[in-house]
Every structure is written in C-alpha cells, then in structure tokens.
Design a protein around this nucleic acid. Structure first.
Length: 535
RNA sequence: GUCCUCGUAGCUCAGCUGGAUAGAGCAAUCGCCUUCUAAGCGAUCGGUCAAGUGUUCGAAUCACUUCGGGGACACCA
C-alpha cells in the first residue's frame, strides 16, 4: 500500500517536472493524521521554490484516488491519506492462505551472509553476557533467513594459545588438589566452579593415574568438556550453529609465516625490538600492533586475521561479527588486516553490544571469568525460563546499556512482556480449540468497525516490520511488534465478542483470530521464543 | 591524557537516514469479572529528551562544546 502511494505521488511529481524526489510515506503515530502520511510537499518546497501548501494542493488535486477515501492537506504541509479499508480486510484471507510464511520475502535472494556471535572461549561456561550477544545474533540470523538470505551461523572457538594453556594448568592444579597436593592456581588461572567440576570428573574416572599426565591431556579434556557444556546451553537457549571454526585448525591449515610474508610484501610489516609489527596505522587504526613477538610466538591477532581471511575466501556478501564493546579497539586492526590482504573491508560489519551490568542490592557486581563470579546462562534459564530470557535480551537495542537486577530477576520474571504476549496467544488458542480451520468467506461484513481496524492495521504492518528489522539489523523491532500485536488483540478481545449467536460475525472473527495466531507465532519464532498454547 | 559509546517519566526501555501535541511497560491512584483465560481492559498521574550553542520552515534525532555513566588504549586474549 505504501509503495502504491509512493508510485501515485511520483506520477504526479513527474507531471510537475520532478524526478527521483526524496520524500517519505509513513504510518503516522497518531491515527488522527490518517492511515498514511507524506512529507513530500515540505521536502520539495526548496526545490520548486513554492510553498509547501501550493505544492500540496497540486498533488492533492492531481493524484489518482483509486482506493483512497479521503486526502487532507494539513499543518505545515503534511498530506494525510485515509484509505478504503477493504485492503485491510482482504489481508485476513491472505494471511490464512500463506500462514506461517506471512511476511516472508525474497529481498536477500542470492546473497550469502555469515554471522558470527557468542564465540566465547572454551575456558569456562557461558554466562549472562553471552546471552545478549546470543539472542541478538541468533534472532538476526532467523530474520535474515526469513528475508531470503542464505545465512551461515558461526562460532569461532579459540581452542589454542595462551589462555588454553592457562586452562590446562588450572585443571591440573585442581586435580592435584584433589589428590592432596598443595598447589596454587597460576596467576592467570581460571577460578570458576566448572574447573573444579572437571577435575572431579577426572579424579572419579582415573583416580590418581593422571598425576604425571602432560599439560596437553588436561587442555584437551578441558576444551572438550567445556565446549560440550557450551553447546548444551546454546541448544537449550535455542541457538543452533551451522559452523564451528577452530583456531587450532586455522593454525594447522595455514602457515602463519606465510601471512606475515604476504603482509610484508604488501608493505605492512616492519621489525622493531625483535618483533614483527603490523602497520595498521597506515589504514584504519591509530596504532601499530605486534603480530609476532620477540620470542617468535604470535599474538592472538595473527590467527584472527587468518580466520577472517578464511571467511572471505568462503565467498560471503556480508560478514557480521557480534562483539562486546570491550573489543571495539580491535575492529580497526581487523579491518586493516582485511584491506592489507586485498579484501573489501566494507563487507565485514562489526556489531558492538554494550555489556550487561549486573546489579545486586543497588550495587554493581563485577563479572569475571577468572574470578569465577558471574551468572551463568544456565542459571538464568533455570530462574526465568528460556522464553523470558530470550525476550528480555531481544527487546532492547544493542547499544543500550542494560542493568540486570539480580534481586528482581526471579520475582520480576512474571512481569516480562513475554508473558503478556503469550497470554494473548494462549487466549487465541483457547478460543480456536473448537475450530479446525478457517471459514470460506466471500465477503466480510462484520469487521467493518473501528475496533477491528486497529488490529487489522497492525497485522498489515508485519511484512514491513520484517523487512526493516532485516535492513536495519534490529531484531528488537520484531520483539516490539509482537508486543503491539498482542496489545491490539487484548484490546479487541475486551470489546468484541468472538464467539456469539451471530454466525456471520463468529466466522469472520474466527478467521481474524487465525490470522493473528499465525502472525504472532512467526514474530515470536524470529526472536527464538516458543509460545505455549495454554497458560 | 587520547579514542569509542551511552544519557529520554520514580524504575526498565522504545522513538534517531530531521516532521505534527515525545511513547510503552513497571510503580502509584481510580474504574471494569452472571458471558470466549482479569497473567486482561479502560482511565488518571508522571518529561528542561543531561546542559548549552549552531544548522533550518522544523531538532530527542544532525554538528560542535561542556558535564555525567560505561568501555578501549599490552610483545594478554
């Protein structure tokens, strides 16, 4: 409908000698301002050297009025359109025909997107911070798919390097502690309970036979154990990955020296103090960084550079990394490396999410993996449930700094809007439980009232919300939509009797409810929430 | 110190490629269950959009400055 109006306006503009004009047609916040509204007259005032009112008048006079009930020219120059409502009512049958595909489109056809998120190191189990990135990345991937993109969800496992050595050492110490050996955790060791759990498991299975086992054994055991736990939690959180990439594999499949040479050949490497530096200040960074240390080992950046090189080689049109803001300094380095290796840095998009701040008794609780102090994702899911957790993180935009109140988390879970939405869904299911499918209706006659219009308008907006959530990469638009739809339904339910003695009205309302049910279900599905049919 | 990011109702947050009187939820107050799920509906209360300056027909939205919160500035990852 919006496109139709834009077309109609453009026809008039062409007549007036204007092409490719920059203007908007949108749904006004206030219903008093029409079903659709355009700022075209104001936008063109400067170009045409006429007052918005004159331009507006001309458009109003000349526009094709098919499907339009009324047009008003108001205020500073807005043109408000009041539409014939039949397109809203016809939409019911359309939704019921396509069902859970309502809003699905082909905008991303033929485009491949890689989205990498969470990617927590296997040196501990997932905590609440990962829950936000997880909800965002997974929801976005679902939305992309619904918009026709070919999507690969990826998790990069840092299963090599210094932090894994520390993991191995930590496990060994805990294990030796169980054997009665007094030894302290290394300086950068991991204090989490899960490390103790791993040691216990090793002790139970092997007794003291691992006393002299080498570090590699503890490392490998730890990674397998923790990655297993991480995958378990993710699955429960309704995230399924397509690809797990491993740093270890990167290190074996590629020659790090070769990449230093490549970068060197392109003029981005220099030696200083016995180390090899990446001259990323020539590109996007304001500082250079070490790639190969004086002792010949590599910094974490090197395998990451190659990892991204590998992603580029796999031929994506767009690659998205979801990272915490604490990694923001890293973006410039990474993009520099992409360019230095001859790839297009614009294809790589880094989404930074503000870290979740944990509050308890009005004070900030410091979360840290090394200290072991954090709320695990698994605890969170136990306490508030998967739906509430997914919705909680999905409804907020990424760059909002969130405070998560520990005291209120449990008692407040019932206030989570997800219950409100689900209640609407459950109410609908309850009513529909006696109806197997939609009725065939030639012409709707009873939904022609203001109560229904509001609901029908919300339903009609869905495809546009889907598209815009994808284009803007904002899953919270979907979360908010689900809420709006639920709200419109609750309100309608209160005013209108669905099942009544009037057969016509009942059948039409049942069809309407089916349409709401499908739309509500998809919208929740896109943010990883599974509605239940009975509260 | 340099850079990034955020600041909207008592609280949690929408709204940001500039548009009409800045919106929800929670909290507070008041109504609505003989009728399809009251985990609901309706209403009231609540604002210097951190502050200032600029850009223009028009600014919560853009630019600059200041203040405040968070983060990054390793031959750690």
């Amino acid at each position: 409908m919006k496109e139709k109006l834009i077309d109609k306006i453009n026809v008039v503009l062409k007549d007036m000698g204007v092409e490719n004009a920059d203007f908007l047609v949108e749904i006004p916040k206030d219903v008093k301002n029409g079903d659709y509204s355009s700022n075209v007259a104001m936008k063109l005032a400067k170009v045409l050297h006429k007052s918005p009112n004159e331009i507006g008048k001309e458009i109003v006079d000349k526009i094709d009025r098919d499907g339009i009930k009324n047009i008003e020219l108001v205020g500073p120059g807005f043109i408000n359109f009041y539409m014939e409502k039949d397109y809203l009512i016809k939409n019911i049958d359309y939704i019921n025909e396509v069902k859970l595909d309502y809003g699905r489109n082909e905008n991303g056809k033929g485009k491949k997107i890689n989205i990498e998120f969470v990617s927590a190191n296997p040196t501990g189990i997932l905590h609440m911070g990962n829950a936000r990135g997880g909800a965002y990345g997974d929801s976005l991937a679902r939305i992309f798919k619904f918009n026709g993109y070919d999507v690969v969800k990826e998790y990069y496992v840092n299963d090599a390097g210094v932090q894994i050595d520390n993991l191995g050492k930590s496990i060994r110490v805990r294990y030796l502690n169980l054997l009665g050996v007094k030894e302290e955790l290394p300086e950068n060791g991991y204090h989490g309970n899960e490390i103790v759990d791993i040691a216990k498991e090793l002790f139970e299975k092997n007794g003291d036979t691992l006393k002299d086992a080498d570090l590699e054994y503890f490392k490998k055991y730890g990674i397998d154990y923790l990655l297993g736990k991480i995958k378990e939690d993710l699955k429960r959180y309704r995230i399924e990955y397509d690809v797990f990439s491993s740093e270890k594999d990167i290190r074996t499949n590629y020659s790090l020296e070769e990449f230093i040479d490549k970068l060197d050949k392109n003029g981005y490497i220099y030696d200083e103090d016995g180390a090899k530096w990446f001259k990323c200040s020539l590109l996007f960074d304001d500082k250079d960084h070490v790639l190969q240390k004086e002792d010949g080992t590599y910094t974490y950046l090197m395998p990451d550079i190659i990892y991204h090189y590998d992603k580029y080689k796999r031929g994506f049109d767009k690659m998205i990394d979801v990272l915490g803001t604490d990694h923001h300094g890293y973006v410039a380095r990474l993009k520099s490396s992409v360019k230095a290796l001859g790839n297009d840095p614009d294809k790589l998009e880094v989404k930074l999410l503000q870290l979740v701040r944990l509050m308890e008794n009005g004070e900030v609780v410091k979360m840290s993996k090394r200290s072991g102090k954090s709320i695990t994702l698994s605890d969170l899911m136990d306490d508030v449930g998967v739906n509430a957790a997914r919705y909680y993180f999905s409804k907020v935009s990424l760059d909002t700094q969130m405070d998560f109140n520990l005291n209120l988390a449990k008692e407040k879970s019932n206030e989570n809007p997800v219950f409100y939405i689900n209640y609407a869904y459950a109410r609908i299911c309850s009513i529909l439980s006696n109806y197997e499918k939609e009725f065939k209706i030639k012409e709707y006659t009873t939904l022609n009232n203001e109560n229904a219009y509001n609901l029908l308008k919300v339903l009609y907006e869905w495809p546009e919300v889907v598209k815009s959530a994808s284009d803007k990469e904002l899953p919270h638009l979907i979360a908010n939509y689900a809420y709006d739809l639920a709200s419109a339904f609750h309100s309608y339910y209160d005013k209108v009797r669905i099942i009544s003695d009037d057969k016509t009205s009942t059948e039409e309302n049942i069809n309407l409810l089916f349409a709401i049910k499908y739309t509500l279900k998809i919208s929740l599905e896109l943010i990883g929430v599974e509605p239940i049919e009975r509260m």
